[in-house]
């Protein structure tokens, strides 16, 4: 049942992607991206990953607002439709065929859907699942791993966000001479 729901949502997301790529209006494409993000969040929820679903829907909403704000003031230009010639389509189909041939062995090596990969008791993820609650005191195993066992990676992610904030501030700053005291 979960697989069927995920399959339906994936088909919906692929149709949405095609609409995003083909749409002439920039604002409609941005709104369609929001629908795709919502579908992805529901997929995470069906795969019983509520932490990831919350983060996905919140980041999708915030990026949607930023993108709408960025596109709604620009004059929306219709992109000139490029006439795709017959040879370019043939080349594209050849590359798709080659891609599927090359990636087929990797697909056959994947485990069955829903099978736990690291189920052996000796693996590190099993150790986290067994001892995470007693060692960190946190019933949410995701938080226990992210903020205790792998807290150094979380520090790296925080530094990545800090660097992006610094980049935005330093690129988009004003040098306003009229009001030197005000911090704009």
């Amino acid at each position: 049942m979960v697989e069927i729901s995920i399959f339906i949502l994936l088909v919906f997301m692929i149709i949405g992607m095609v609409f995003v790529l083909e749409m002439k209006n920039l604002l409609s494409a941005v709104v369609m991206m929001g629908a795709i993000d919502f579908g992805l969040s529901v997929i995470f929820l069906l795969l019983s990953a509520p932490d990831l679903a919350i983060v996905q829907i919140a980041v999708a909403v915030i990026s949607l607002v930023i993108m709408i704000r960025a596109t709604i003031h620009r004059e929306i230009v219709e992109t000139p439709s490029q006439e795709s010639t017959f040879s370019s389509r043939v080349v594209m189909l050849c590359f798709l065929f080659l891609f599927f041939i090359l990636i087929y062995p990797a697909f056959s090596l994947l485990p069955i859907f829903g099978e736990p990969i690291f189920a052996e008791s000796a693996s590190s993820s099993m150790k986290y699942l067994l001892e995470g609650m007693t060692q960190t005191g946190s019933p949410n195993i995701v938080t226990a791993i992210v903020l205790d066992f792998r807290a150094y990676d979380t520090l790296g992610e925080a530094i990545v966000l800090f660097t992006s904030v610094l980049g935005a501030v330093s690129v988009l700053r004003y040098r306003n001479r009229k009001k030197p005291g005000s911090s704009t």
Binding site: P50, D51, A53, I54, V55, A58, V59, V61, I62, V65, G137, S138, P139, N140, V142, T143, A144, V146, L147
Partner: peptide, 18 residues
């Protein structure tokens, strides 16, 4: 309640920023 239920610092922070 990030250590008890789903969520955490990142998700809650994004909601506050919203």
């Amino acid at each position: 309640l990030g250590h008890l239920s789903p969520g955490g610092g990142f998700a809650g922070g994004v909601i506050i920023a919203c």
